[in-house]
């Protein structure tokens, strides 16, 4: 009994500690944004790494997401003879939900984990200590460029994923439901509103900030050698996934209660 309480208390304490560290790191990163210009080379190379390195994975996930969406909604719409609306449904779902979420999940798996592994390895091999002793702030030098790069990549990739997903939907619409491409795209264009795209990008921003912060926090608090680095990486992926979905729901909810609800309310 007491044992159980102790374990729960311990877990709660370490969760609070980690949350505190993550918030502190986020604050420090914000302060470090003043050094963006000095770090531009690093930022560009990190952005290239995060976006170029994720092009193939995100292409495949986006294409199939769009195809699956088109197929499932197509089956339902067929019953009402509304399959021409596939275009809008796919476009709106991609822009509002699937695009940012799929991109964020891919980036958490690809980049968040590697941030944790890199910084964790640097931590356990005393490289972070070495930076500090040289009066080089690890947040400015390592964390800030990664956060900025992940945000930039996430925004760009989200647009790309939206587009690929819509294309995937068009392929399924044309092949399985006989919706002509021109009708599919006109429908998508006519009904989709710009603010739905923006909503997706706002999500992408928060997802990227959370993934990068989690990855860097876990990396910087890694200890106990290779095993610690492994744990940091693992936790990053798990926490990022959970946070992405929680944030997604929170943002959706906020758009509704604040009255900037996007969609037609059908």
């Amino acid at each position: 009994m007491t044992n159980w309480v102790m374990v729960a208390a311990g877990a709660f304490e370490s969760a609070c500690l980690t949350a505190g560290r993550a918030l502190a790191l986020m604050g420090a990163t914000t302060t470090a944004l003043g050094h963006v210009r000095r770090r531009r080379v690093e930022i560009v190379s990190q952005t290239f790494r995060a976006s170029y390195g994720s092009l193939l994975v995100t292409f495949l996930t986006a294409l199939f997401s769009g195809m699956i969406l088109a197929f499932q909604t197509g089956l339902e719409l067929l019953r009402f003879g509304q399959e021409a609306s596939i275009g809008y449904i796919v476009a709106a779902s991609m822009c509002r939900e699937m695009g940012p979420v799929m991109t964020a999940i891919a980036l958490a798996g690809l980049m968040g984990s590697s941030y944790a592994a890199e910084l964790g390895t640097m931590k356990v091999s005393e490289e972070i200590d070495a930076l500090e002793v040289m009066s080089i702030d690890p947040v400015r030098y390592l964390v800030m460029p990664r956060v900025v790069a992940l945000v930039a990549s996430s925004l760009a990739l989200t647009v790309y994923v939206d587009a690929v997903g819509i294309l995937g939907g068009a392929m399924v619409g044309a092949s399985s439901f006989n919706v002509e491409l021109s009708i599919y795209f006109r429908n998508a264009q006519d009904v989709l509103e710009m603010k739905e795209v923006w909503l997706g990008l706002i999500k992408a921003f928060f997802f990227a900030v959370s993934t990068a912060t989690i990855g860097c926090t876990m990396g910087l608090s890694a200890d106990q050698g290779a095993e610690g680095v492994g744990r940091a990486t693992q936790k990053t992926v798990v926490f990022s996934f959970v946070f992405i979905l929680m944030l997604d729901h929170l943002i959706n909810y906020l758009t509704k209660v604040t009255g900037i609800y996007v969609g037609r309310g059908v």
Partner: peptide, 19 residues
């Protein structure tokens, strides 16, 4: 501390080079 550290050189036991 930041200012003081600028006047100190530190050789780590394991060198701690950035890999």
């Amino acid at each position: 501390l930041q200012e003081i550290r600028k006047k100190i050189g530190f050789l780590f036991q394991g060198a701690a080079l950035l890999n």
